[in-house]
Deep mutational scan, measured.
Amino acid sequence: TFEVERIVRKKIVHGNTSYLVKWKNYSSKDNTWETEDDIRTKYGDLVDDFEK
């Protein structure tokens, strides 16, 4: 199971928000862009903290 360590960046393309996710126990080269809906479902607190 993958676990988010932190959110690195945010991008908005054509009105759709995605977050660059750093995965726990993986290197930064393994970071992936994930949709806001996918990340918010399980890691809403991390998204809220990133947006502060």
Rank of each mutant, 00 (worst) to 15 (best):
V8C: 12
K24V: 08
T35H: 10
E51S: 01
E3C: 10
E36D: 05
Y19W: 03
T32D: 00
D48P: 04
G44A: 14
K22Y: 04
D49C: 09
D30M: 15
R9V: 06
V8Q: 04
K11R: 14
R40V: 08
E5F: 04
E36T: 03
I39F: 07
D45A: 13
D48C: 06
L46H: 05
D30G: 11
T17L: 07
E34S: 04
V47Y: 06
K24Q: 07
V47Q: 03
K42R: 12
D37P: 08
R6K: 15
K52R: 13
Y26H: 15
H14N: 15
K11W: 05
Y43F: 11
E5G: 03
W33A: 01
N25W: 09
D49M: 14
K11F: 05
E3N: 05
K10T: 04
V21R: 02
I39A: 08
R9Q: 10
V13G: 04
D30I: 09
D38H: 12
D49F: 11
F2C: 15
I7F: 02
D48S: 09
Y43G: 04
E34K: 06
V8T: 03
D37T: 11
D49Q: 13
R9M: 14
T32K: 03
L20R: 04
K10L: 05
Y19V: 01
D45S: 12
V4Q: 03
F50G: 01
I39E: 01
W23A: 00
V13L: 10
D30W: 15
D49L: 14
T32Y: 02
K52E: 08
R6M: 14
V47A: 07
F50A: 02
R9L: 11
K11C: 14
Y43N: 07
E5P: 04
F2E: 10
V47E: 02
V8Y: 03
H14W: 08
K11T: 07
G44T: 08
N16V: 15
K11H: 05
D45I: 10
F2A: 14
W33H: 01
E3Q: 10
D30K: 13
G44C: 07
R40T: 05
D48V: 06
T41H: 11
V13K: 07
D38V: 12
Y26W: 10
T1P: 13
D38Q: 10
G44P: 15
K42L: 14
R40K: 10
K22C: 04
D37H: 13
W23N: 00
Y19G: 01
R6P: 02
T32I: 02
K29T: 11
T1L: 12
K10D: 01
K29G: 08
W33C: 05
K42T: 09
D30C: 15
Y19A: 00
Y19T: 01
N25Y: 10
I7E: 01
